[in-house]
Amino acid sequence: MSGSGRHDGHGRLGNALSNLAVAVGCVLFLGGFAWGAVVYKPYTVPTDSMSPTVNAGDRVLAERVDGGDVRRGDVVVFTDSAWGAVPMVKRVVGVGGDKVACCDKDGRLTVNGKAVEEPYLRDGGASSSPASAGRAPASPQDFTADVPEGQLFLLGDERNTSLDSRVHLEDPGQGSVPRSAVQARVDAVAWPMNGMIGRPEAFAALPGGVSSEGPLPLQAGALVAGAVLILGGAAYGPLAARSARRSERPKVSAGAH
């Protein structure tokens, strides 16, 4: 009887812990999913203008942000009537008050006279003389633009084919778009699962620095932890019952025969 009581006590405790694990797992999983749905919006990128960072057909997760929170180096989703009034994905390389130009003697983009290394370009950008390094310049055509206050200057990472601020240099604002046009900031490529889009170090030294990482890693962690707790808690019951049945089998002595 005492052994049975111990087994019953262990069983009740195990079931309680199992139920608690499932309950906490559900909270984490559903909470992480709901949090992500509120903060992020999925987009499908239609062109290769941001290749190789984001390719045509990629499914990205973009954090809903205010245009005032955007920093240089961010990949953003925006809509502007001068660009066709459809959502577009480009990288911010200049903000209000900046002088953006290309290219310097080493083929690099410059912001306020400071050369910017762009490792996210297909060939890694021009970090030394293009002729000696065999690398293409940061833009196939030279340009200069003064970005008005409250505006953003945007380029695609595929500089040979991207239709970006360079195409609109003759427009008011010299190709820039208002911060209010920004709808979201791209944080990750969800499909294929290429992971987070980092903040370029080259822009960190400029005034304002780079934006902070979004909450996507925390949300993903909550989803994973929730799934593990749910599966672990749900699996405990059958495993505990199987273990109990094994322990209750009568032992046969060697001299029974």
Score class of each variant (00 low, 15 high):
Val27Trp: 03
Leu28Trp: 11
Phe29Asp: 13
Trp35Gly: 02
Gly36Gln: 11
Val38Ala: 06
Tyr40Ser: 02
Tyr40Glu: 00
Pro42Phe: 01
Tyr43Leu: 07
Tyr43Met: 03
Tyr43Asp: 04
Met50Glu: 09
Met50Arg: 06
Thr53Glu: 03
Thr53Lys: 00
Val60Asn: 00
Val60Gln: 01
Ala62Tyr: 04
Arg64Ile: 03
Gly67Met: 04
Gly67Trp: 15
Gly68Gln: 10
Val70Thr: 04
Val77Leu: 01
Asp80Asn: 15
Ser81Lys: 15
Gly84Met: 14
Val86Ile: 13
Val86Arg: 15
Pro87Cys: 08
Pro87Gln: 10
Met88Leu: 14
Val89His: 00
Val89Lys: 00
Lys90Leu: 00
Val92Phe: 01
Val95Lys: 08
Gly97Ser: 05
Gly97Leu: 05
Asp98Cys: 04
Lys99Phe: 04
Ala101Val: 02
Ala101Cys: 01
Cys102Asp: 03
Asp106Thr: 12
Arg108Cys: 05
Val111Phe: 02
Val111Lys: 05
Gly113Glu: 03
Lys114Gly: 03
Ala115Pro: 13
Glu117His: 10
Pro119Trp: 01
Tyr120Thr: 03
Tyr120Trp: 04
Asp123Val: 07
Gly124Trp: 07
Ser127Thr: 14
Ser128Ile: 09
Ser132Tyr: 13
Ala133Arg: 02
Gly134Lys: 13
Ala136Val: 14
Pro137Cys: 09
Pro140Asp: 06
Pro140Arg: 05
Gln141Tyr: 09
Phe143Pro: 09
Thr144Ser: 15
Val147Ser: 10
Glu149Lys: 11
Glu149His: 13
Gly150His: 08
Leu152His: 06
Gly156Ala: 09
Asp157Gly: 02
Glu158Ser: 14
Glu158Ala: 14
Thr161Leu: 14
Ser162Gly: 12
Ser162Met: 09
Leu163Ala: 15
Arg166Ala: 09
